[in-house]
């Protein structure tokens, strides 16, 4: 059974890049443009096995999304990865405090991405 991954980023380029990497590895991908859209999907009953979210986004950023997603019933234990850049150490720490499992550093190549996913997602 292929795992569901939700990707959240306000950059369509980033979404496209992530989607193609993930789909090539056999994941089912759902994309959202910001935190609000992501939360709406989650509240609508969509239950991904993993969430990968950008930090800086309009409407609702990644940090807030992580906190809000964790509070949803089915999302208590779901792995969440924050997409950060090299310089965002403080954001990573904050993401972790908000409940993120880990982070990815942009730009990400497909191999690294799959490596990290394998690490946080059992049964891949």
């Amino acid at each position: 059974m292929s795992k569901n991954i939700m990707i959240v980023d306000d950059s369509a380029t980033m979404l496209m890049s992530l989607r193609s990497s993930l789909e090539m590895s056999g994941f089912k991908v759902e994309a959202a443009n910001d935190g609000v859209q992501a939360i709406n999907k989650l509240q609508g009953g969509y239950k991904p096995d993993l969430i990968i979210t950008d930090i800086n986004m309009p409407n609702m950023g990644g940090l807030e999304l992580i906190g809000k997603a964790r509070a949803l019933p089915g999302m208590r234990f779901t792995p969440i990865l924050a997409l950060t850049t090299e310089s965002q150490q403080a954001k990573r720490d904050e993401a972790k405090r908000n409940g993120a499992t880990g982070w990815l550093v942009k730009p990400i190549n497909a191999t690294d991405l799959l490596g990290v996913i394998k690490q946080v997602l059992p049964g891949v």
Binding site: V36, N56, G61, E64, K91
Partner: peptide, 28 residues
């Protein structure tokens, strides 16, 4: 351990301020 335990200044959140016309809550 993180390099500077307890000394990292709290960074203000940088979530973009919403524009008034974007706050409409309907899903885009």
């Amino acid at each position: 351990q993180a390099l500077a335990l307890g000394v990292a200044p709290d960074q203000a959140d940088t979530i973009t301020p919403r524009r008034a016309d974007e706050t409409a809550s309907q899903a885009p």
